[in-house]
Design a protein around this nucleic acid. Structure first.
Lengths: 390, 390
DNA sequence: TGCATATAGTTTAGGCAATGAACTAATTGC
DNA sequence: GCAATTAGTTCATTGCCTAAACTATATGCA
């Protein structure tokens, strides 16, 4: 297939994907939407039907004239979203429209287990979800896996995941999803979650910085609805912006990084709450209780985190010219106490650049990484449908 | 002309532009370079010759066989690079290969004069250079104008140039270069200078942050040899990264920005050297003398600037994932004294991420902004030659 | 009920711009 | 001086588009 037809195929498929949920555009509507004429649209739609990416879905019409045949993304095709985190693994089935159909979480300590057993457990969970997909009549085309660390997607390699204690782990082809035509793609967790935010907040501006509070502080930079990854693929690491030159040492080897005052461990320590890997979620619950009870140490810890988060965001804003922030992870949970010091700090360090309504909370929550990883695989398929047509 | 042919035209012209200086590729060589066959290359070359963008230039051959006809960018076409700065205006003629053929600088205080007289003076200087171009047999196709401030290129408007005291100045079409087919495009000075660095350091990596020390501190972010401008076009403003949360107030309204410790005024003040707009370049010379004499106050001021510059670069590096820095403006001048504290600071705040050879000095120097503005206009013409053919 | 109008989708003709192979032109090397 | 080699052109073919005509199927009003 020639380049021209290939890109027009993506154009037509993208136009179907862009239609709001429940709206099934006809071939004629696709022609006007894409700027192509009806002739090639009909022929491209035929290809996409053959490839199983589109499906005819009743009528699309309202007014006079012959009714059109509605077209939709084939609901019988899907992608697995997967996640490996410090204390759980998860897998979910996402259809081509981005709907989460099946979701399985298995809690386990992945820090002490080796990489092999964890990947085997993930493959098992993925197999379970894939079987469930089969019962729904959904064929799984590929998968996206989010991990809390730096990845090299091209090499399917996890470069380093400090909180898992992993480094240079390569994902063998077919190990997780044997036989899936698109294989499994790797993503950084915060980046994937940022992409999920894009998908799930339609009109809400397509330029923002997603900041995710986890054990560390992750970030994803979305510009023009696309992830900005920088030359080596690791942009958006706002957790290591220097916010206090005379601050304490960071796990990255640096000094005074945002993570040293706004990561979970830092906040818990400052609040005087003990935490280790296995009890961290319990500790975070204790922190919220302490905040609700108005305990001064807890309030001061969150206050400090908010203030320094503002410093980091103000700096980031000037470097990449982004005016919106989405808070995720524990930053979303702590928002009631974090928000005031954060906004005050933004007002001090970047006056006139952030209005309060530009600091919003994550809408996808916990499953964001999984949704985003799967959604990104879907998106790349819609942008390049020939990957499947061969 | 169809889209396909249009993009292939750019492909062929780009292949000629990519050839090293003095090498004149033949049609057959262009065919292999572009992946097209000889037939369309011949026909596209014909179009480009007609448009005056290419010229036949003797033979291209070495080995056996029929010699090819060499092709080069037409040296009889050029673009004006222009600059308005605090204490001078400048204009230069740049040919399509990026060579600076004519260069005129006129010193004048643009801060006290109004925008109208300054623009009129610039138009006069541009006219002079254009006349000189005519004597060289070079036709001026358009121009690029660099200013020290934020610009909206689409609207040909200078949004704000604090050091000039300008805000919302619109460049009327034809005011500076009447009749030039491409008109005049606006650029931020540091961004333009960054682009000039790209052009003039061939193999030296195409991802870097250009940091320019001026009255303020400007920056340009180059990723994949392209300027990264962010969603609103103002990315790279590293001068307003917060390096000291408890620092002093900045002209931007913020607190503790890099500019408050590393801008010219800040360094001069810390070194105990008086400065105003008219004597600033003299003051900088005094500073260098003081440094050479080993005066403690001067050394401490530059030391502090270097240390905080390192903080800002370490943070920027994590946000945009850039591992190379090019120092321009007074940072290049002060390099002998600035370098050690800068490297030490980078080692402390971003350990293992910057090696000393990744901190380099500007190769284009003073005329960088002018060269970059003109070069960018040339580049956009080469990427879209139909702008001229129509 | 029936016909004008409107819209969907297919068919046919035509055009642009590519590829591939054959052909002509100009040079080197033995 | 002729074979080998490379440059550039010509011609036939192909891919894929647009434009317009045509067929199919609906609505709305007399």
């Amino acid at each position: 297939m020639g380049d021209v037809r290939r890109s027009n195929t993506a154009l037509v498929l993208g136009a179907v994907a862009k239609a709001p949920a429940g709206v099934h555009p006809s071939r004629a509507q696709l022609a006007t939407a894409t700027g192509l004429t009806k002739r090639p649209v009909s022929s491209l739609v035929l290809d996409l039907l053959d490839a199983g990416l589109l499906r005819e879905a009743g009528q699309s019409q309202q007014g006079r004239g012959r009714p059109g045949v509605g077209l939709e993304l084939n609901p019988a095709r899907g992608v697995l979203g997967m996640e490996i985190n410090v204390d759980y693994i998860a897998a979910g089935l996402v259809d081509l429209s981005g709907n989460l159909l099946v979701h399985e979480v298995r809690e386990q300590d992945n820090r002490s287990a080796g990489t092999g057993p964890v990947l085997a457990a993930l493959a098992g969970l993925a197999g379970t979800v894939r079987a469930a997909a089969g019962e729904h009549g959904v064929e799984v085309l590929g998968g996206g896996l989010a991990v809390p660390g730096l990845v090299d997607p091209a090499a399917a390699r996890i470069l380093t995941a400090p909180n898992l204690g992993w480094a240079n782990v390569t994902l063998e082809p077919g190990a997780v999803l044997p036989g899936a035509p698109l294989g499994v793609s790797l993503f950084n967790e915060a980046n994937a979650a940022a992409l999920a935010e894009v998908r799930h907040r339609p009109k809400e501006g397509s330029d923002f910085l997603f900041v995710s509070g986890e054990v560390g502080v992750g970030g994803g930079l979305v510009i023009g609805s696309e992830l900005f990854t920088g030359p080596e693929g690791h942009a958006g690491e706002v957790g290591h912006v220097v916010v206090e030159p005379d601050g304490t040492g960071c796990s990255c080897g640096g000094t005074g990084c945002l993570e040293t005052v706004a990561g979970q461990d830092a906040i818990l320590a400052a609040a005087g709450i003990a935490a280790d890997t296995r009890t961290r979620s319990a500790s975070m619950a204790l922190l919220v209780q302490a905040l609700q009870a108005g305990e001064p140490a807890a309030l001061a810890a969150v206050n400090r985190a908010g203030r320094y988060l503002g410093v980091a965001l103000a700096s980031t804003m000037r470097v990449v010219n982004i005016g919106s922030v989405v808070l995720g992870g524990h930053f979303a949970v702590l928002d009631p106490w974090l928000r005031a010091p954060l906004l005050a700090s933004l007002g001090r360090y970047a006056p006139g650049r952030f209005s309060p309504e530009q600091v919003t909370l994550s809408v996808v929550g916990e499953s964001g990484a999984l949704l985003g990883a799967a959604g990104s695989v879907v998106r790349s398929l819609i942008d390049a449908p020939h990957l499947l047509q061969s």
